[in-house]
Amino acid sequence: MTIHAPALRAAAYRGRLRWWSELPLIAVVYTVYSGVRLLVRGEVGNAVGHGADILHDEQLLHLDPERWFNQLFAHHAFLGVPADFAYASLHYLVTPAVLVWLWLRRPTHYRTARTWLMISTLIGLVGFTTLPTAPPRLLTGGYGFIDTMAQYSSYGWWGADASAPRGLGHLTNQYAAMPSLHVGWSLWCGLMLFRLGRHWAVRALGATYPVVTVLVVLGTANHYLMDAAVGVLVMGLGLVLTRPALRVVDMMPGRRQANRQTAADPASTAAAPRGQSPAATDAGPTTVPVVDEAPGDTSATPTALAHRQGAR
Rank of each mutant, 00 (worst) to 15 (best):
T148P: 00
T286P: 01
Y224D: 00
G197R: 00
G167N: 09
V240W: 14
Y13C: 08
G15C: 08
V248K: 10
V249H: 10
T2M: 11
Y30Q: 09
L239R: 09
A52R: 15
S277I: 01
G184A: 15
L104N: 11
A283V: 02
L8V: 00
L122P: 00
A300K: 12
T301E: 06
G254C: 06
L181E: 03
V212F: 15
P253V: 07
G296T: 02
V290H: 09
Y224P: 01
Q261R: 03
R18V: 01
F194C: 10
I26D: 04
V216M: 07
M1K: 09
T262W: 01
L39Y: 10
W19F: 14
N259T: 06
A272H: 00
T286W: 04
V290A: 12
H223W: 02
G296V: 00
R9F: 13
Y30E: 10
W188V: 00
Y87L: 12
A204C: 10
N222C: 13
H50S: 10
M149L: 15
V32D: 03
M226C: 08
L90M: 12
R255E: 13
S89K: 04
R308S: 07
L104R: 14
A7H: 03
P253K: 07
Y110M: 02
M235T: 04
L39E: 11
G167Y: 11
A300I: 06
Q59D: 07
W116F: 12
Q309L: 09
F78C: 08
H182F: 07
A272D: 03
G124S: 12
V48T: 09
A221T: 02
H170Q: 14
Q309S: 09
G236A: 11
F69Y: 13
A97S: 15
R14F: 05
H109L: 05
F69T: 01
F78R: 07
V98F: 10
P132T: 05
V29R: 01
P289T: 01
H62A: 11
S120H: 02
T108D: 15
Y30G: 04
N70Y: 04
V291H: 01
L125F: 10
F69Q: 02
P179I: 03
C189R: 01
T112A: 08
D297W: 09
F78W: 15
G156Y: 07
P24S: 13
V240I: 15
F78D: 10
T269V: 15
Q276A: 13
L131D: 05
G238K: 01
L8A: 00
A304D: 10
D84G: 07
A267G: 06
R256G: 03
L60C: 05
T298V: 13
G35D: 11
V81N: 06
I54L: 15
P266H: 03
L125A: 08
L139W: 12
I3Q: 05
F73A: 05
V98E: 10
I123Y: 12
G159A: 14
T121P: 01
L196F: 12
R312D: 10
P136G: 12
L171K: 07
A113Y: 13
N70V: 00
F194V: 04
G159I: 05
L131Y: 15
V36Y: 09
P295Y: 07
T298D: 14
P244I: 02
